[in-house]
Design a protein around this nucleic acid. Structure first.
Lengths: 183, 183
DNA sequence: GGTTCTGTACCGGCTGGACGGTATAGCCAA
DNA sequence: TTGGCTATACCGTCCAGCCGGTACAGAACC
């Protein structure tokens, strides 16, 4: 694993364990096992580090979504179903400290949220492309967002069983027997 | 309006307009029209100020929920319907800078999130008390959370018409024609 | 009704420490 | 020996929290 990746990992871990406010270049260096100078060699500034974290997040989301999309059967709501499945992947971004990137960006410099906005725009486009009822798909996906943010903020709701039931219900809402309004 | 409230207002405004990272005691004092000493008279520390902000948030949520609950007709999912309505109140916490309290807390000291956790616990309890299908109610309310957090992070999804349609669909899912599984 | 005491509200300067960023020197593999 | 990478030392700035002080309003006492 490259030093650059190690630094990003360290930053993510700090954010998850101690909060965004505790993320400093010094600490990121210590956790990554190098010195601050080393960090600043790979990232020209703290903003640059956050950018790296955000990119890691968006890359990971893209990757997992593509992978689930390939597995998901064709038909209406294919993208929405993909997003639901991805949200419950135990190894996906939804259960990774990688989400801390979001908090770091919105806290330290809202401009760094730009890639996130772009990602959302892409999702919205994909959802529209194959959802017979975009309101239905939107609600379900917004619920996935809610779940994601709750996890991010340490607001856990129920156990694994609850999560599974939630996923199943979300998929039910997106099943062929619930096509919703025609476009 | 008391000086204390003025300070909290100022802090909220700063968070909304400039981001959590820009919230300092000095700036809060300036915006509130007093000195830093004055701020520290009312709040013993910055953490204490955040606590005040969080309490303002939870109080406001409580108040608006109680008010909508009173207006909401009896029957299954009354609490869930209440939460949906409250989420779309243009004057409610969902559309107020008061939400910045959440970001401030999670950023500066996750321990300060405790009242938020307590609030969620109460909501969950209420939801369970009158939802024939708690999974259904949970999904809808999680979607409301998603909407809230999206707004908080500046990720807007659609216009007012979209919001209205989303609310109507959420209420449809909670209507008597959709009772869901029996308890 | 003047004087002294006490508590509340607020002010503004100060300091010590943390933090982002720079400069520079050292290490090591190709 | 050059270039990629890392360590160390340092600087300037910012900020939380502290503290000595002011203003003022009521109470208490004479």
């Amino acid at each position: 694993m490259s030093t650059r990746d190690k630094i990003i990992d360290a930053a993510m871990t700090i954010v998850r364990d101690a909060g965004v406010g505790k993320l400093t270049l010094d600490k990121a260096a210590t956790v990554a096992g190098i010195s601050k100078g080393g960090v600043l060699y790979h990232f020209r500034s703290k903003d640059d580090l956050i950018r790296g974290m955000v990119q890691r997040l968006t890359d990971q989301c893209d990757q997992i979504n593509q992978s689930y999309y390939a597995q998901e059967p064709e038909g209406p709501y294919r993208w929405a179903r993909t997003l639901v499945r991805a949200c419950f992947d135990p190894n996906g971004p939804a259960n990774d400290p990688v989400g801390g990137a979001l908090l770091a960006a919105v806290t330290l410099n809202p401009l760094l949220m730009e890639p996130i906005h772009a990602m959302y725009a892409k999702w919205r486009e994909r959802l529209s492309s194959d959802s017979p009822d975009i309101v239905r798909a939107g609600l379900v996906c917004t619920a996935m967002d809610g779940l994601y943010f709750q996890r991010l903020m340490g607001i856990h709701r129920g156990d694994q069983g609850d999560a599974r039931r939630l996923m199943e219900f979300a998929l039910t809402l997106l099943s062929p027997s619930n096509p919703g309004a025609a476009p």
